[in-house]
Design a protein around this nucleic acid. Sequence first.
DNA 1: GAAAGGAATACTGTATACAGTAGCCGTGTG
DNA 2: CACACGGCTACTGTATACAGTATTCCTTTC
Lengths: 233, 233
Amino acid sequence: MPSPTTTAGGAADPVRRPAPLREAVYEALLDLITTRALPPGRHLVETELAARLGVSRQPVREALQRLSNEGWVDLRPGYGAFVHTPDEGEAEQLLAVRALLETEAARLAAGNADADDIERLRALWLRGTRAAEEGPVEAAVTANADFHRALIVSSGNTVLAELAAQVDRRVRWFYAPIARSRGQASWDEHARIIDAVEAGRPDEAAALMADHTERTRTAYRELGEGGDTPETV
Amino acid sequence: MPSPTTTAGGAADPVRRPAPLREAVYEALLDLITTRALPPGRHLVETELAARLGVSRQPVREALQRLSNEGWVDLRPGYGAFVHTPDEGEAEQLLAVRALLETEAARLAAGNADADDIERLRALWLRGTRAAEEGPVEAAVTANADFHRALIVSSGNTVLAELAAQVDRRVRWFYAPIARSRGQASWDEHARIIDAVEAGRPDEAAALMADHTERTRTAYRELGEGGDTPETV
DNA sequence: GAAAGGAATACTGTATACAGTAGCCGTGTG
DNA sequence: CACACGGCTACTGTATACAGTATTCCTTTC
């Protein structure tokens, strides 16, 4: 590494204090979208959102741009921004990609994770398994996401991690209306994955993860067919 | 599909006529970056770019946002935008992800591609193999990119295609200074992949693609070590 | 002479204002 | 009564103006 920014930066500040408004707006809009307060297909009027959030149109525009790049909204030039309406089969595609990325992440993690990574995973597992048996559904879903994210980071591949994070968020959006966690069984599978990673067995870790994501996929597919599909437009 | 836009739209316009400035600015900046006219680490001053392109700061900002999301520039809040400087090992990570995505794409294509897809791939192959033996290096690189993109689209998974497109562009950026094509051997491999896809043999197509991307990876690694690495900062 | 502090500077972040255009409704006509 | 034309409305796209902040260089002091 080069030199530490001339005058010794000390510890990196965890978060920029005067957080850019576009960040706050982005978070707010993402929350409104994922909670379905802004339903798919909804026309997002810039002035309206700006007034609602108490800022000018500029930060709103920038946030919408970012949301567009990440697939949350569709931007029709000259007309406006609309909350993305999932295509038929898009959930299936997302789940397929997610399975692919996470399986590879597990394989890499088995060859890369150090003691700290393992410790972190075990801690998250403990929290998740508790949330699954007693806490609210929301907490369990969050814990599940945190666990998967930590595992992907342990792979050591930053590019893979960024892509997987994007995909994972969109997958969770589909799950939101179902609001269900596969529960204890899922966390048993997580535990076996950690073991394989810790033991340094890439193929086993990958196989377990492939199996795990496939089960999740099946669970979603059944719920999607039985219950209400997100959209038919 | 619904109704054809009331008054019969006829053929969909290939490109929006009053193209948003941000698009043009985005393209222009991307070109400047990929051609190294704006080298890694360069501080991108908004007013400067705006003056250079004859527009205001607004479209420039929006283009920079998008470039940031796609990993081309780093945005330091309160300070500005900088052309992304590749980390040590980032090329390796990108190539690994690319191999993963394209291998899966080949597998899916083998189970999804129709006659039109095959025809398109063969046409691109013909163009590419000609470019490789006679045309300029640039044409061969473009043909290669086109072929890979077409194959990924043939997989039928849009999400996968979008992700792969992003990764592929960044990979090509690394290749740009090397400005080399693996030539005829690479196109022989492409031909075999098409055959496997057409025959509907997923595993064979995947294996061939894995092999193909691995060779490309090796070629890059050797060139990277022997020649000049993109950056040392 | 080196280090610490402060002021100047230049850039980003945000807000406001103006222009252009796409969609929509009412009116008129066949 | 259906259809086409014209004006209207509302929104986006772009430009300009102002405020806040990080950086840098100069000055001062030990």
